[in-house]
């Protein structure tokens, strides 16, 4: 692989490489212990079978252990929000109602621990 230079780094810092439509699953030890792997798998599988244009990715621990597994969802036209206590069933609802139906899912939204 090509070795990077300082310029390369500064160019990279300008890019937001994350896509605008994403489902980010908190996948640190705490999240995985609470069932995040299953949630990640179901998102990945459903997005593929239903051919939805959304990027399913993993991230580290955001610190909200009481709400694990947590998932951050962003789709075009809606503000990004964080869902907590996401079971397989909730994951499916998020896909159907939020990602496809553009309607937020009741009772699972948690405030982000810090304003971005």
């Amino acid at each position: 692989m090509k070795k990077m230079t300082r310029d390369d780094l500064e160019k990279c810092a300008q890019n937001t490489c994350q896509s605008t439509q994403y489902i980010k699953v908190g996948m640190s030890t705490c999240g995985i212990a609470a069932g995040a792997q299953d949630v990640f798998d179901i998102f990945a599988k459903e997005v593929k079978t239903r051919d939805i244009n959304v990027n399913v990715c993993k991230t580290g621990c955001i610190g909200m252990c009481h709400a694990e597994p947590v998932v951050e969802v962003a789709v075009e036209g809606l503000p990004a929000v964080m869902y907590g206590g996401v079971t397989k069933e909730v994951a499916l609802r998020i896909l159907e109602e939020h990602v496809c139906g553009k309607r937020f899912v009741n009772d699972h939204i948690f405030d982000l621990p810090v304003r971005r």
């Binding site: 300082r6 810092a13 490489c17 993993k58 991230t59 580290g60 610190g63 621990p113 810090v114």
Partner: peptide, 30 residues
Amino acid sequence: QTRIVLRNCGVIDPENIEEYFSKGGYTSIA
């Protein structure tokens, strides 16, 4: 909360260095 240490935790994909770059990663060492 004020997040410095945890600034990228739960935000970027820890297994993807490009995402760390997008947060200005490795510009400090440069």
